[in-house]
């Protein structure tokens, strides 16, 4: 069993949104919704500025509050790569998970279930990277098994300075940003 995560090199990212659009086509995300997005953080005063551009999505947390709060068990951690998923048939659209997510990564699909990033499990099971990772023209995104010390993601985390989003939320997110 793997523990999949992402490592994203913000130095390379230009915030072009290719990841966002690739997710829309790959997963046929309905109009008006998206499973990933771009955040641009600017600090300082002109012209002494610094800027971090990030592609963000569900963090597939090790301690996922969306799973523990789900009344029906629809939100769950799957076996193959500890990816946090939603069983559409079991979901009653109560939105408890939306409220519990510190990353605002979920939305209610017009067909009535909570929806979000799946790490493109259908691709990952077939040995491919998630669509966002595969299309990125800046090659700033890396996907792999955080439990495998030899994986590219593990090696990047060992060798580069990095941070995660809202670590204080205590959810142990599995998406890391190299700076």
């Amino acid at each position: 069993m793997a523990r999949f995560g992402m490592v994203i090199d913000t130095a390379r990212c230009v915030g072009c949104m290719d990841c966002v659009i690739a997710c829309k086509t790959e997963n046929q995300v309905p109009e008006g919704f998206h499973r990933d997005w771009i955040t641009t953080e600017v600090s300082g005063r002109f012209p002494t500025l610094s800027m971090e551009i990030r592609t963000e999505r569900c963090n597939h947390c090790d301690e996922p509050p969306c799973v523990t709060c789900c009344p029906t068990g629809a939100s769950h951690v799957e076996e193959f790569g500890r990816i946090v998923l939603v069983n559409h048939e079991q979901c009653i659209g109560c939105k408890a998970c939306l409220a519990s997510c510190p990353y605002d990564a979920r939305f209610v699909h017009p067909d009535g279930y909570a929806d979000k990033c799946t790490f493109c499990i259908h691709r990952v099971e077939a040995g491919q990277d998630p669509a966002c990772v595969a299309v990125c023209p800046t090659r700033c995104m890396h996907f792999g098994d955080l439990d495998d010390p030899q994986s590219e993601v593990s090696r990047l985390l060992q060798s580069r300075r990095h941070h995660a989003l809202l670590p204080e939320a205590g959810t142990r997110p599995r998406i890391f940003y190299l700076s």
Partner: peptide
């Protein structure tokens, strides 16, 4: 853009002159 990311990734020195703090300026 792909090559720009490669150059940045390889530690190239980037100099940007622009009235606007562009993505590249970042």
């Amino acid at each position: 853009v792909q090559e720009f990311a490669d150059a940045v990734g390889a530690g190239a020195s980037v100099i940007v002159a622009d009235p606007r703090f562009s993505v590249a300026a970042g």
